[in-house]
C-alpha cells in the first residue's frame, strides 16, 4: 500500500510535474481546437459526398472514409512524421499531427454525419423540394439540422475520442500533456506524473462521457 502511494500518488512529484503537465494540457487543447473543427468540416463534406447521386463521387468518398478507418491513427502519424522527410518534405510535429488527425477524424466524423443524413426520412426531402427549395437549400435547412440532432451523442463521443487521440502526439515528441508527463516520469522513475495526467484527462472528459450516457438513455435504439 505504502509503495503504491509512493509510486503512483506521490504528491511531491506531482507538484513538481504540474507546471510542465499544465503547459502540455495547453498544447493538447490547442491540437483539439485545430483538429476538431477541421475534422468535423472535412467529415461533413465527405458525408455529403458519400450520399451523392453521382456514383463516382459517392464511391470516392466511401473509399476515402473506409481507408482512413482501416489505418490506425498512429501508423498514419508516423508515416507522415517519419516518412515524409524521406521525400524531402520537412514538417514540424504539430503539422504532422494536425494533418494525420485531420484525415483520421474526417473519416470518423463522415461516418457519423452520413448515418445522420440517412436517418432523415425521405419524405422530408420530398416535402422541401415540393416547396421549391433547391437541393442545396434542402440539405442545409431541412436535412442537416435533423441529421445533426439525430446523431448528437455520436458526435460528442467522437469529440471525446479526438481528445484521447491527441495523446498519440507524444510519440512524435510533440509536447502535449502525455509527453510532458512521460518526460517527468523518465526523470523521476516514478509513475505519479502519469497519474496526474490521467486525472486531468478524467476532469476534462468525464462530464462529456456522463452527458453522452444520458443522451443515449433517452434515445431508444
Amino acid at each position: 500500500m505504502e509503495a503504491i502511494i509512493q509510486q503512483f500518488f506521490n504528491i511531491e512529484i506531482m507538484i513538481k510535474a504540474l507546471p510542465l503537465v499544465l503547459k502540455g494540457l495547453g498544447v493538447t487543447l490547442l491540437i483539439c481546437a485545430v483538429v476538431i473543427p477541421l475534422g468535423a468540416l472535412g467529415g461533413l463534406f465527405a458525408a455529403i459526398a458519400s450520399v451523392s447521386k453521382n456514383r463516382a463521387v459517392r464511391w470516392t468518398a466511401i473509399g476515402f472514409v473506409d481507408l482512413f478507418r482501416a489505418i490506425p491513427p498512429l501508423v498514419l502519424l508516423i508515416f507522415i512524421y517519419a516518412g515524409l522527410p524521406f521525400a524531402g518534405i520537412q514538417i514540424s510535429p504539430f503539422v504532422a499531427v494536425a494533418v494525420g488527425f485531420f484525415l483520421n477524424n474526417s473519416a470518423y466524423f463522415a461516418e457519423v454525419f452520413r448515418a445522420g443524413i440517412l436517418s432523415v426520412p425521405k419524405g422530408q426531402t420530398e416535402a422541401a423540394r415540393s416547396t421549391g427549395m433547391t437541393q442545396g437549400q434542402t440539405l442545409f435547412w431541412v436535412t442537416l439540422p435533423q441529421a445533426v440532432r439525430n446523431v448528437l451523442p455520436d458526435l460528442l463521443s467522437n469529440v471525446v475520442e479526438v481528445v484521447k487521440l491527441t495523446s498519440l502526439a507524444s510519440v512524435v515528441s510533440l509536447g502535449e500533456m502525455l509527453h510532458a508527463a512521460g518526460l517527468v516520469r523518465s526523470l523521476t522513475y516514478n509513475a505519479s506524473p502519469l497519474v496526474l495526467a490521467a486525472g486531468l484527462y478524467l476532469v476534462l472528459l468525464w462530464p462529456l462521457i456522463r452527458l453522452i450516457s444520458r443522451f443515449e438513455r433517452k434515445i431508444d435504439t
Partner: peptide, 24 residues
Amino acid sequence: ADVLRALPPLVLILLAFFGLPNIG
C-alpha cells in the same frame, strides 16, 4: 466503464508498463 472510456489508452499502457514494475 467511465474511467476506461475517458482515459486515452496510451496513458493506461504507459502507466501499466512503467508504473507497475515499481511496485514489483
